[in-house]
Nucleic acid binder design. Structure first.
Lengths: 162, 162
DNA sequence: CGGGAATGTCTGACTAATCAGATACTCTTT
DNA sequence: AAAGAGTATCTGATTAGTCAGACATTCCCG
C-alpha cells in the first residue's frame, strides 16, 4: 500500500484509493436512490429537501442565502437559482434583512414546513432500508460518529465559495 | 427517534436523517475538495479520473460504454459525452467491438495510463489528509468495511439506467 | 468622517448532465 | 428465416449547476 505506484493497474488497485472510491460510490448511489424517491413521491429535488431541513433548523427568522451556500457546497449563484425555484413552488419566501440591506432572509412557508415533514417520512423509510440495514448494529454508533468527524474535517477544509 | 414526526423542526432534528445527511455531506465535500485538486493539478474532472481507474482495472481489451455507465451512476448518453471529451483529450480510444457490432469498446491510451498514475499520486496525498486523518486508527478497518457493505447494498438497489 | 476593500445577491454566458427518441444491430421464438 | 423484442450508442432539447462580472451596501482604517 505504501509502495510507489508506476502503472495504471497498480493505481486502480491502490487500497486507499479504493476505500475512498467506496465512500463516494456509496454516497452517490444512496443520494441517487433517495433523491429519486423524494422526487417521485414529493415532487422536490434532493437538494431542495436539504435546504428545507436547513431552514427548518433555523426557525422563524430565516437565514441569509450566504449561509445556505456555505452549508451545501453550492455557489451563491446556484443558491439564488435554487431558491428561485423553491419560491416558485411556494416552499420558501424571501424577505428583506433588516440588519443588512444587501442581503435577504429566506424562511420556510407553511407549505414548506408541511413538505419537510412529508419528505422526511419518505426519506426515513428509505434510509432505514438502504443505509441502516447494511451496517451491523454493533458498528452503527461508531460509524455515524466517524462520518460526523469526516464531515466536519472536510467542511473546515473547503475554501469559501464565491 | 422512533416517534412520529409532525413538525419541520422535528424532521430536521431526526437522528437518522442527520446521520445520513452527514454521509452525504462528507462525501460531497470530499468529492469537491479532491475533484478540485485533480482538476487543477491534472487537468481532468473527478469523473474522468474515476473512468480512468475503471478502464485501468479492465486492461487491454477495453470495455463497452454500457459497463461504464453501470459502474458510475450515469446514463448512457452521459457516458457518450464524457468519453467524447476524454477522447478529445487523448486519454481513451474507442474501437469496434468484434463480438457485438452495435457496441464499441473503450480502452486507455498510453497518455491515459500516464494520467491515471499521475492523478492517483495527487489523489492519494489528499485522501490521506482529508479522509484518513480524521478517522481514528482503530476504527479505520471497520469503517472501510462498512463503506464497502453500504456501497454494494446501494449498488444492488439501483434500477438500471437507460 | 471619507474612501477603498469586502460582502451579499443577482445575472449572462457557458457546461455537463438528463431524458426521450432515433438508429443499428442482436437475440429469441416460432 | 422472419418477426418482434431487446440492447448499445448517439443526438436534440432541456435543465441545473458553475464562473465572472455588475451593483448595492457595509465594514474598516487612516
Amino acid at each position: 500500500m505504501g509502495e510507489e505506484i508506476t502503472t495504471a493497474k497498480e493505481a486502480a488497485d491502490d487500497g486507499l484509493v479504493l476505500a475512498f472510491g467506496r465512500l463516494l460510490g456509496a454516497a452517490n448511489r444512496l443520494e441517487y436512490l433517495l433523491g429519486r424517491a423524494i422526487e417521485e413521491e414529493c415532487g422536490i429535488s434532493h437538494l431542495m429537501y436539504e435546504v428545507l431541513l436547513i431552514l427548518a433548523r433555523e426557525g422563524e427568522a430565516g437565514m441569509p442565502m450566504r449561509a445556505i451556500s456555505r452549508e451545501q457546497v453550492l455557489t451563491t449563484g446556484g443558491v439564488t437559482r435554487l431558491i428561485d425555484r423553491m419560491e416558485a413552488l411556494g416552499l420558501v419566501a424571501r424577505g428583506d434583512n433588516p440588519d443588512d440591506r444587501r442581503g435577504r432572509l429566506v424562511r420556510l412557508t407553511e407549505a414548506g414546513e408541511r413538505k419537510a415533514v412529508e419528505a422526511t417520512r419518505v426519506h426515513r423509510e428509505n434510509i432505514e432500508r438502504y443505509f441502516v440495514a447494511p451496517i451491523p448494529a454493533e458498528h452503527r454508533e461508531w460509524f455515524a460518529e466517524d462520518l460526523r468527524k469526516l464531515s466536519h474535517a472536510a467542511r473546515d477544509a473547503i475554501p469559501r465559495l464565491r
